[in-house]
């Protein structure tokens, strides 16, 4: 495993920790989209169907378990924890899941590497992950007073994808037969969706002001 890939995974892990920290310490999920979190839980379930059938490494299995466990616990906190759930901006978080899930499923049935259940679910998870951030970005745009942890969480999530792209470029040049068009294009789309956010993130960082996306 190369350093870019490891950095990508660690950034992803830290983003989840930041979010859980926010939920745990201040007992608040204000500004966090439950829709996006539910989509991530679905992404991990569909992608890690091979967790018990294809052993890759201990690292790989543990990370999969962590991402599955944390994504479901975040959803649980936001839906059922008696204090946390009160801070959920339900009226603002109105993005419809099926607008994203259905097209991704259809696309996965049409464009995949192999027409098998596991492969289609894996492809579906890639397409869905690419767009799963959209409800969160919409909510961010609507929220007037976004706290710093929420902004850092979204930034880390975007940084993870950007690092994965660098990892793919590295692997393409160093590994023979390393060619994954579906993964690359989905990952690229996902990172592009962050473009606007990154732009305003750096602007707010440069000018030392709170981040606010223009309506």
């Amino acid at each position: 495993m190369n350093i870019l890939r490891l950095a990508g995974d660690m950034t992803h892990l830290i983003s989840v920790i930041v979010l859980l920290l926010k939920i745990h310490s201040i007992k608040s999920c204000a500004g966090i989209s439950l829709k996006t979190q539910e989509l991530y839980a679905l992404v991990f379930v569909s992608r890690y169907l091979n967790i018990f059938t294809d052993f890759i490494s201990l690292y790989n299995t543990i990370m999969k378990l962590i991402f599955l466990g944390t994504s479901f616990s975040i959803v649980w906190y936001m839906r059922y924890h008696k204090i946390v759930r009160r801070s959920y901006d339900k009226d603002q978080d109105t993005f419809r899941h099926y607008f994203l899930v259905l097209p991704c499923l259809i696309l996965a049935l049409l464009i995949n590497e192999r027409f098998t259940f596991k492969e289609i679910m894996w492809t579906f998870s890639l397409y869905l992950e690419a767009v799963a951030i959209l409800p969160q970005l919409v909510l961010l745009q609507r929220t007037k007073n976004t706290d710093n942890l929420t902004v850092q969480y979204i930034f880390l999530l975007g940084a993870y994808r950007a690092l994965y792209i660098l990892n793919w470029i590295y692997r393409y040049f160093t590994e023979p037969d390393y060619l994954h068009w579906i993964t690359w294009i989905s990952g690229l789309v996902q990172t592009i969706l962050y473009g606007d956010f990154f732009y305003y993130y750096f602007l707010s960082w440069k000018n030392n002001v709170k981040l606010q996306l223009p309506a």
Binding site: M1, R5, D9, H12, N50, D54, I56, S57, N60, M63, K64, F67, E113, R114, W122, Y164, D177, T183
Partner: peptide, 10 residues
Amino acid sequence: NPTRKPKDEL
């Protein structure tokens, strides 16, 4: 595609 490597990315 006979030489399919297992998917090692997360």
